[in-house]
Computed example of a mutant assay.
Amino acid sequence: MAHAPQPDTTGAPDTTGAPGITGAPRAPGAPRASRASASFVRFVVFGGGVGLASSAAVALLAGLLPFALANALVTIVSTVLATELHARFTFAAGLRPATGRCPLRCGLRHHLQSAGTAAAAFSVTTLAMLVLHAIEGTPGLAVEQTVYLSASGLAGVGRFLALRLYVFATAPEQRPVPVSVDLHRSPTRRESLTTAS
């Protein structure tokens, strides 16, 4: 003889996320993981796009200015641009403009922190190449590219995490606390007296 399922009176939320069950929330972490993946794709697209535009701009400006000056100018502008794009679109930080007339969303603190992460990423790739050349005097092109791209990838992931978790971190979402009512609990003597009066 089959018994009807008893209602859950423990108050614990159902996190199974089973399909077909109305009102069953998804497993915790799944939406957050998908948001992080989407942010990482936008980070690569915007960062890569700014990087490609920067290399073209340096090549154009190098004909008019000394290379060091052209590279410095483009690096500053591209870092500011990438920071703004990441704030507005990659992480959707929801920042208001720094001042009433300034079109920039990020304040000086965000730009300095973002520049710090870019400098750290540059240091990682430079250190990787220095170590490679210290170990092997004349490495082949394939080895150099493998080391450089591996270091760049590692530095990029580190920069993404630093921007997401520190520079553009937002307050965690406030979730309602489930309220449980125990229907099988008998009222205490004090509750019975209060109800009777």
Rank of each mutant, 00 (worst) to 15 (best):
T10L: 04
P13D: 05
P13R: 12
G17Q: 01
A18M: 06
I21C: 07
T22A: 14
R26E: 12
A27M: 09
A30V: 15
A33I: 10
A36F: 12
S37R: 08
S37V: 11
A38C: 07
F40E: 02
F40V: 04
V44T: 15
V45T: 15
G47D: 03
G48N: 10
G48D: 07
G49P: 14
A53P: 08
S55R: 14
V58D: 07
G63Q: 13
L64P: 00
P66M: 05
L73T: 01
V77Q: 01
T79C: 07
E84D: 03
H86S: 07
A87C: 12
R88M: 09
T90R: 07
A92R: 12
A98C: 08
T99S: 09
G100M: 04
C102L: 11
C106K: 07
C106L: 07
H110P: 00
L112E: 00
Q113N: 09
S114A: 15
T117A: 15
A120E: 02
M129G: 05
L132P: 14
H133K: 11
H133S: 04
A134I: 04
I135H: 00
G137L: 13
P139W: 04
G140C: 02
L141A: 13
A142H: 03
V143M: 10
E144L: 06
Q145H: 07
Q145I: 11
Y148W: 13
A151C: 01
A151V: 03
A155K: 08
A162D: 00
V167A: 06
R175A: 14
R175T: 14
P176K: 08
P176Y: 09
V177Y: 01
S186C: 05
E191I: 07
L193I: 12
L193C: 11
T194L: 14
A196G: 09
